[in-house]
Design a protein around this nucleic acid. Structure first.
Lengths: 125, 125
DNA sequence: TTTGTTAATGCAATTGAATTGCAATAATAA
DNA sequence: TTATTATTGCAATTCAATTGCATTAACAAA
């Protein structure tokens, strides 16, 4: 299926670009595009970006998905293996520099990581 | 609120005991107690265990919660900070030995971790 | 043992996010 | 300019999780 460029995609892409290291939830994005497009479209656009590898998707322990533009990712070599942090007070989620390095027991093969630290950010601590 | 010991709690506790290092999903547990109790009770029992710190709760990237008895946990000193692994093929989730160690940037305070590695287990790889 | 309090349970109803179906719209290749 | 089909909006649906409430039963106190 060939993708097409649309206003909806561009709008969401711009929003994600403007929030490079702070992953946004579906909800966050919906609010920013309120009125401009349907919430179903937001789902579908985010999913297509994710499928295409343009963004990464974090499931936080609040049960919500957060999306962020891929940094340091080349076409075929994604690096989504950094830690994320979620503040219990202000709810903000962000990407941490530190990479996840695990020594898996023999025989295990790693495909992806979803690592989240929960706590309080400097502003809220 | 004082807790009471009930058959439902004992049944679920036994199931979790029998699956110490393999966290079970709500669904898994429901199947094991099918007929014996209502699914709402399963939710409530698991939540009470979690609130009381008897079990830990992992949100996997399949969007489901998994529950496991706390290992190496003393009353007031929980250690849930190990990695978990989920197999993309057989769906099994398990606790890994390795602890999560992150160097948080200055000012950040860590409360809990939810770290999941996804991939293929030895049986499925 | 009996009784009173209230935690725990089952059932039905509700919530709420995510998904799906389908018709209308619009991007893009021919 | 036209044909194809990806995209979108809207309504409806799905499904897990949660809530309200009446009933049941654990357990502390008499």
């Amino acid at each position: 299926m060939k993708r097409r460029n649309t206003a909806a995609k561009q709008t969401i892409l711009d929003i994600l670009q403007a929030s490079r290291s702070v992953p946004l939830s579906q909800e966050d994005i919906e609010q920013k595009v309120a009125g401009k497009m349907n919430r179903v479209t937001v789902y579908r656009v985010l999913n297509s970006f994710y499928e295409d590898g343009y963004i990464h998707k974090i499931l936080a322990d609040d049960g919500k998905y957060y999306f962020a533009i891929c940094l340091n990712c080349r076409e075929d070599d994604h690096h989504h293996d950094h830690f994320h942090f979620r503040c219990l007070n202000c709810q903000k989620v962000e990407c941490l520099q530190e990479e996840v390095k695990v020594q898996l027991p023999g025989g295990y093969r790693q495909e992806s990581v979803n690592c989240l630290i929960t706590g309080y950010c400097p502003e809220c601590a």
